[in-house]
């Protein structure tokens, strides 16, 4: 388990080096293990295969214009009730509990004189 964690950590540091362009240093991290070296090669291939893709400038500019125009209404700040939903729920639950307790207490109190009278 500890060895696996250590390998995952080394592999992660290798990938970090790969991403910042410090390959030489990165390879030294994994050179001690054939298995890790193989995974490092695969990581390198993935980085090359998944090179970032950028949106077309025309699309990017058009979407920018749409977003900053008034065509899409921004949702207004949420209402007080929405922002304090949790507090309201707790309050409602407490209120309900107290009401039920009150009713139960009332019923019990009414029953007691009846029992005494019996």
């Amino acid at each position: 388990m500890a060895a696996e964690e250590e390998e995952s950590g080394l592999l992660n540091r290798f990938i970090e080096g790969l991403l910042v362009g410090d390959e030489r240093q990165a390879w030294s991290l994994v050179s001690g293990s054939a298995e890790l070296t193989a995974l490092a090669w695969l990581a390198r291939s993935l980085r090359q295969a998944l090179r970032p893709v950028e949106p077309e400038p025309a699309f990017r500019a058009s979407l920018h214009a749409t977003l900053v125009s008034s065509a899409i209404p921004a949702r207004r700040e949420e209402s007080w009730a929405t922002q304090h939903r949790t507090e309201l729920l707790i309050g409602a639950a407490l209120g309900s509990t107290l009401s039920i307790a009150g009713v139960v207490a009332l019923v019990l109190r009414r029953r007691q004189p009846a029992r005494r009278a019996a």
Binding site: E7, L11, L39, A43
Partner: peptide, 8 residues
């Protein structure tokens, strides 16, 4: 990190 290791 562990998931990435296993995935690779």
């Amino acid at each position: 990190k562990a998931l990435l290791h296993r995935t690779l």
